[in-house]
């Protein structure tokens, strides 16, 4: 029981990260109907920027008060990662707007390759370890098993991740539902041509969607860095695929769906590793995806599509 609870907390933490990345996928898919394959790599870029800023602040400038450092890292990371998100859209997707469906998918895959190899070339192929920065936690429950004492612990790190995710999600939902930007976004989702006829700046709305997605991915990147303490240029692929899986699982185009899907994928992965085998955790996540899609093709919270004849 204690073991299960501990895994539940771990799953929630990992799921938060997936959920934050998944939002980027789901928004972009909702608005322009393409799989932004490079989004996972934007997440990776975000974690590298976070690492660089963190190191500059701590080792070069000598800041030591961690909360302030992390806040600065978060903000700078969001800004600079957003610039990457904007640039990718501007260079690789906007020229192909209104073109054929597969063209932006291929440029997205191309961009993904470019970003990975750009980081590999400029930062080296070796992993970047960062010693754990936030230690300790709150013990929620104690119990004993045959193997010995077992503790259910909610570490401060996990707390930060979960709270930040909740705060960002709330802000974000407000942004989408309450502001004119959100309205413009939903209008573009429905009918881009009509939206532009009604005076919505479609290009800017799409750009902002990419910027927002990248900003959230950068937060996920920072969390990933702090949680696992090790990053390399290749982390974006698997995290990206899983986050996309999460977005599809939750019903692509739906923001709460993306978060829910992220949590589920995180949970499945952690539980599978805990109870079955670590090696096959990715297989578990992908199999669940396939099963859900076959039996529930529009995901958990997506709107069911009626076939138009």
């Amino acid at each position: 029981m204690e073991y299960f609870l501990q895994q539940l907390i771990n799953g929630l933490t990992l799921g938060s990260i997936y959920g934050l990345i998944a939002i980027g996928y789901t928004m972009v898919y909702g608005i322009i109907g393409m799989i932004n394959f490079a989004h996972g790599d934007i997440f990776m870029i975000g974690s590298f920027i976070a690492l660089a800023v963190f190191l500059i602040l701590t080792t070069v400038l000598g800041f030591t008060f961690l909360p302030v450092v992390l806040l600065i890292v978060l903000i700078i990371g969001m800004l600079f990662t957003s610039a990457w998100g904007w640039t990718v859209e501007r260079l690789a997707y906007r020229p192909l707007r209104g073109s054929f469906r597969l063209a932006p998918l291929i440029t997205a895959i191309g961009m993904s390759i470019v970003l990975q190899n750009f980081v590999q070339v400029t930062q080296g192929a070796r992993v970047k370890p960062l010693p754990p920065q936030i230690q300790g936690g709150v013990t929620l429950m104690e119990g004993s098993t045959e193997a010995g004492r077992i503790v259910v612990q909610l570490s401060y790190m996990q707390m930060i991740i979960i709270v930040t995710t909740i705060v960002l999600m709330t802000l974000f939902t407000l942004l989408i539902t309450r502001t004119s930007l959100g309205r413009a976004q939903r209008a573009c989702e429905q009918d881009r041509k009509m939206a532009s006829l009604l005076g919505v700046n479609v290009d800017r709305t799409i750009s902002l969607t990419f910027v927002m997605g990248a900003a959230l991915a950068s937060v996920a990147g920072l969390m990933f860095l702090l949680l696992y303490g090790v990053i390399d240029f290749y982390i974006g692929f698997l995290a990206g695929v899983k986050a996309f899986t999460a977005a599809v699982l939750g019903g692509i185009g739906s923001l709460p769906g993306a978060m829910l899907g992220g949590l589920l994928i995180g949970m499945i992965e952690v539980m599978w590793s805990a109870y079955f085998s670590v090696e096959y955790k990715d297989v578990a996540a992908f199999s669940i995806l396939a099963i859900v899609l076959i039996f529930l093709p529009s995901g958990l919270l997506g709107k069911p599509e009626v076939e138009k004849v």
Binding site: F48, I49, L51, A52, V53, L55, I56, T59, V60, F80, A83, W84, T87, F118, V119, T122, Q123, G124, R126, K128, P129, L130, P131
Partner: peptide, 20 residues
């Protein structure tokens, strides 16, 4: 802006952790 943390700054593994 894009290159600042990639071209301008490089993190490397050094004896005492990562070095900039």
């Amino acid at each position: 802006a894009l290159g600042l943390f990639f071209l301008g700054i490089r993190t490397d593994i050094a004896p005492g952790g990562l070095a900039v």
